[in-house]
C-alpha cells in the first residue's frame, strides 16, 4: 500500500467513441457512480490507441490505464478491436517485462448499452489500483547512470 496518505490514483481510460464512450455517457445519465480518479479520453476506435500512449502514460505518472472498446465483432470499423486485442496482448507481456504490474492495465469491451457494466468495471479497476498502490514512474533509462 501507498505510504503517501494523500495519494489518489491517476487513471486514464481510453474509450472508443462508438461503444465505450457512449457506455460511459449512459453510466452518467443513469447516475451509476464510480470514483472520480478515472478520466476518460475519447478515441475514434480502440485501435487508435497506440501501445506507446499507454507506456507514455505510465511514464508520465499514471497509476492505471484502461482501454475500452466495442465487443469483438461489434466494432464500428468492423475489425478495429481485433487489432486492439492482439496489440494489447503483446503490450501486456512487455509491461510485465519492464516491471509494471499486470493489474495496472486492462482491456474491457463495453457496449453503448452497458452503462452498468462501465460503472462496475471502473469501480473494480479503481479498487484494484488502490490495492496496488502508487505506481513507480516508468522512467526512460537512456543516458542515465
Amino acid at each position: 500500500m501507498s505510504v503517501n496518505a494523500d495519494w489518489k490514483p491517476r487513471i486514464v481510460a481510453f474509450c472508443c467513441n462508438w461503444c465505450s464512450y457512449a457506455g460511459a455517457d449512459l453510466a452518467g445519465s443513469s447516475r451509476l457512480a464510480y470514483p472520480a480518479d478515472v478520466k476518460i479520453i475519447r478515441e475514434p476506435c480502440s485501435c487508435r490507441v497506440n501501445p506507446m500512449f499507454i507506456l507514455k502514460a505510465f511514464e508520465r505518472g499514471a497509476d492505471g490505464v484502461i482501454l475500452c472498446g466495442c465487443h469483438p465483432g461489434d466494432c464500428h470499423y468492423s475489425t478495429g478491436n481485433y487489432y486492439t486485442r492482439r496489440r494489447m496482448a503483446l503490450l501486456f507481456s512487455m509491461l510485465d517485462y519492464i516491471g509494471v504490474e499486470r493489474g495496472r492495465t486492462r482491456v474491457e469491451w463495453v457496449s453503448a448499452a452497458e452503462g452498468a457494466k462501465f460503472s462496475r468495471v471502473m469501480n473494480d479497476f479503481v479498487a484494484q489500483i488502490r490495492e496496488l498502490g502508487e505506481n513507480v514512474k516508468v522512467g526512460d533509462l537512456r543516458c542515465k547512470e
Binding site: P44, C47, R48, N50, H76, Y77, G80, Y83
Partner: peptide, 24 residues
Amino acid sequence: CGACTVVCPSGAMDLKGFSNKQIM
C-alpha cells in the same frame, strides 16, 4: 478509425483530429 496510425513503424501515419500529439 486510426488502425493504420498504430501499425506504422516509421511514425508517418497520423490521424487528423486525434493526432498522437493531441492524445498525448
